[in-house]
């Protein structure tokens, strides 16, 4: 066992963990933040996407022990109280989901996409940037629409 401390959604947390603990298990099992999902567990589907020091990464492929001092943001950290983040609101508005399992990862990837590529995203950029996020229900059309609109809304909210 070893101790790791990091900031998760702005709150400092510290836990004794087995060095094998993946970030996603740390979030789900130790902190009970179950919004971050485990889909494939093989770095492909993107359901476990969170932000590490402001960049989207797959939390099933990171050791929690290696993230001493890091700033983690999960899907639970996006909304301000009852007010949804503009990207969350856009997914609801455009019905960018069916079963919802991939949605937390989609939204975290989408926010990261906007951070890197700006607020005016064309469909091709969105689709290319989503290659690390797999959805088995929607066929992606509404996800692309949601991200397009969420990106614009994030710009307007600034």
């Amino acid at each position: 066992m070893a101790t790791v401390s990091m900031s998760v959604n702005g709150k400092l947390v510290s836990r004794d963990i087995d060095p094998r603990t993946l970030l996603v298990d740390f979030l789900r099992e130790h902190l009970r933040l179950t919004g971050t999902h485990v889909g494939c567990d093989t770095t492909q589907c993107g359901c476990c996407t969170v932000h590490v020091d402001g960049k989207a990464m797959k939390s099933c492929t990171l050791l929690a022990i290696g993230l001493e001092g890091a700033q983690i943001t999960t899907i639970e950290g996006l909304a301000k109280g009852q007010e949804l983040h503009p990207m969350q609101a856009a997914f609801r508005e455009h019905h960018g989901l069916q079963c919802g399992f991939c949605t937390p990862g989609m939204i975290m990837a989408a926010v990261d996409m906007v951070n890197r590529k700006g607020n005016h995203l064309d469909d091709q950029t969105i689709r290319e940037e989503l290659e690390g996020n797999i959805c088995r229900c929607t066929g992606y059309h509404n996800i692309v629409k949601a991200i397009h609109s969420g990106a614009e809304a994030m710009g307007a909210a600034k």
């Binding site: 770095t43 989207a56 797959k58 990837a109």
Partner: peptide, 9 residues
């Protein structure tokens, strides 16, 4: 290489 999340790490 890979996808955006993999490229970040």
């Amino acid at each position: 290489i890979g996808d955006p999340m993999v490229r970040h790490r």
